[in-house]
């Protein structure tokens, strides 16, 4: 067994009286695509923010690639190799696609020509090759999601956190995106994705974590997890699993 890439130890995050993340521990090996699912408000995005460093945990530790990054700010974690996309896309609206991606590429390529060339190459890879000089503000939802991925990818991360990149896309766009995610994994990038589009999750992820009310309630291969009564109840309410098992959807 190789050393794990990411270890979370008893992470807790409170916002005032609300405990968004409640003692989450997990160990993520190198490689592969891992999914995080859970009902709305379960704390999935907060968990990503704690890993990427845009929020600090109240207690617990984040270990990444053999080092403790708990106290590092987001930019320093990006330098270590944690990349993320935002659920609500955050393009640099006044810049072109190429310039947007180049901001990410500058992290490993200080020279302008190298960064711009790298940006073009990565934009091509996520399917934005034809829109390099388009202003980011003019992009469609689907293209903005691609831009999020391209920018994060340009920082050459070891771990890439994808926050609902399929949400708001139509079925054919979702189908186009799946190979992009698989290609990332094939290049050796460890991918962690928050996703609601279940058939994509089932297709892409080898392992799932289920988060509900800030706690990890289940984990395992997708087929097992989605049969877990606890998971079903977290989505559909108490007693739902038993009712489903009886074969009746009513009542």
């Amino acid at each position: 067994m190789t050393a794990p890439l990411l270890v979370l130890e008893g992470l807790t995050k409170r916002f005032g009286g609300l405990t968004a993340i409640d003692g989450v521990s997990l160990t993520l090996p190198c490689g592969g695509v891992t999914g995080i699912i859970g009902p709305n408000g379960a704390g999935k995005t907060t968990l990503f923010s704690l890993i990427a460093g845009s929020e600090r945990a109240n207690t617990g530790r984040v270990l990444f690639d053999g080092g403790d990054v708990t106290r590092l700010p987001a930019n320093a974690r990006a330098v270590r190799g944690i990349g993320r996309t935002f659920q609500i896309t955050q393009p640099f609206a006044g810049m072109s696609v190429r310039e947007n991606v180049a901001v990410g590429a500058y992290l490993r390529h200080a020279r302008r020509n190298d960064a711009l060339a790298r940006a073009a190459e990565i934009a091509e890879r996520v399917g934005l090759g034809g829109r390099l000089d388009a202003p980011a503000a003019s992009l469609t939802v689907s293209a903005r999601k691609r831009l999020e991925v391209a920018r994060a990818l340009a920082t050459e991360p070891k771990l890439l956190l994808l926050d609902e990149i399929l949400a708001g896309l139509n079925p054919s766009e979702v189908r186009e995106f799946a190979p992009v995610v698989r290609a990332l994994s094939a290049q050796g990038i460890t991918v962690m994705m928050i996703e609601h589009v279940m058939h994509a999750v089932m297709n892409l992820c080898a392992h799932l974590y289920v988060l509900a009310e800030g706690r990890l309630i289940a984990q395992g291969p997708p087929a097992e997890v989605t049969r877990d009564p606890l998971v079903i109840e977290s989505y559909l309410g108490k007693g739902a699993a038993a009712r489903l098992a009886r074969g009746g959807g009513h009542g």
Binding site: A74, N75, A76, R84, F92, G94, M95, R112, T155
Partner: peptide
Amino acid sequence: RSRFGAYLVAVRENEAAARALGVD
């Protein structure tokens, strides 16, 4: 035309996104 300039504009456009890309 420098990295500093790109970072500066990135901070103007969206500071949180810039930080996530490694910009101090």
